[in-house]
């Protein structure tokens, strides 16, 4: 167990420790008590407990042996459905240890699977129904094909509300002997956007500097942690320094190991905040979409981003 990182240290181990998502937790708890559950699809944004709930289910169902009966896969790492299939096959071949008649396969970030891969996944799910239950997690259930949705009980997770976030803040503050001002708490609620991972990362970063935390400390941490290089690239391009802009872009991509899509996501977000006319903004957004499509199709990432950057020149 990793205790040096709070998102892991304070990850709930039991149903009653989970903040928010009360209705979902209640239903799932009932499944666990009956030692039977359907395939499930957990949908919702990041950091609100999808993985945590799955882990709790495994712990509660299997007790000590949970590690042997729970397979965790990430669709965005194990891209090819073939990898998924092979791992599932190896895992599902043996029966569950203990008195639970099935094992659990948790497949995270399912929306990064293509439609074809999802079709293959559906078949895999069918072949191992006897020995396994699947918990799929995704950000948007609309990105999951109908046949999979219809085989799963769908649970829609909501971003954590004010009370849930406060509960986490107070719990951690107490354990770590931190003092957090009321203003700082409100700021944390706002900045976290209901994302417990983000919240805990900010808290730990602040605590590393000072155990007394006020509003300014939080803003400081957030602004340091946020990458500003992409904005700098765009600003260079807007001031017609194209060569400077593209050199910086290459540096940023190489140093941070960003993919073309990572970059374009940030560019798209920054466009709306730029100091240019609305007409220009929309033209750039349009172009952005075109280029993102090309990237997804598999074009030369850097060349395509350069051509996008060229559109930022002469917008003043």
């Amino acid at each position: 167990m990793i205790s040096s990182i709070w998102t892991e240290k304070y990850r709930p181990k039991d149903f009653n420790e989970i903040a928010g998502q009360e209705k979902i937790v209640e239903r799932v708890k009932a499944f666990v008590e009956q030692k039977n559950m359907p395939h499930m699809l957990f949908a919702g944004p990041a950091g609100i407990g999808k993985t945590t709930l799955s882990l709790v289910i495994a712990r509660k169902l299997f007790g000590e042996a949970w590690n042997h009966n729970f397979l965790e896969l990430n669709a965005s790492d194990d891209r090819g459905i073939d990898t998924v299939r092979v791992k599932v096959k190896d895992f599902a071949r043996t029966k569950a240890i203990g008195d639970v008649p099935f094992k659990i396969i948790y497949l995270d970030e399912c929306d990064s699977l293509t439609k074809e891969a999802q079709q293959a996944l559906r078949r895999t799910m069918e072949s191992y129904t006897a020995t396994c239950r699947f918990i799929l997690s995704c950000n948007y259930s609309s990105k999951i094909i109908e046949p999979i949705q219809s085989r799963c009980t769908i649970f829609r997770f909501k971003p954590l509300d004010k009370n849930a976030i406060l509960k986490i803040i107070n719990h951690i503050a107490h354990k770590e002997e931190m003092h957090i001002t009321e203003d700082a708490k409100n700021t944390l609620i706002e900045i976290s956007g209901g994302d417990a991972r983000r919240l805990e990362n900010i808290l730990q970063s602040c605590a590393a500097m000072n155990k007394d935390i006020d509003e300014t400390a939080i803003y400081e941490i957030v602004s340091i942690a946020r990458p500003k290089e992409i904005l700098a690239v765009l600003e260079k391009a807007i001031s017609n320094d194209f060569i400077g802009a593209r050199n910086l872009l290459l540096d940023v991509m190489l140093n941070h190991g960003l993919s073309g899509v990572d970059v374009i996501k940030q560019i798209q977000q920054e466009i709306l905040n730029l100091n240019i006319t609305n007409e220009h903004k929309m033209k750039l957004i349009d172009k952005c979409g075109d280029i993102e499509f090309r990237l997804v199709e598999g074009s030369d990432e850097f060349l395509q981003l350069e051509s996008l950057l060229a559109n930022f020149t002469q917008t003043k």
Partner: peptide, 18 residues
């Protein structure tokens, strides 16, 4: 319990404080 890309973009930036 994260994907590698999330670990890169969401966790690694905070590591510098820890």
């Amino acid at each position: 319990h994260l994907s590698t890309s999330k670990s890169l973009t969401e966790m690694m930036p905070y590591l510098k404080f820890y």
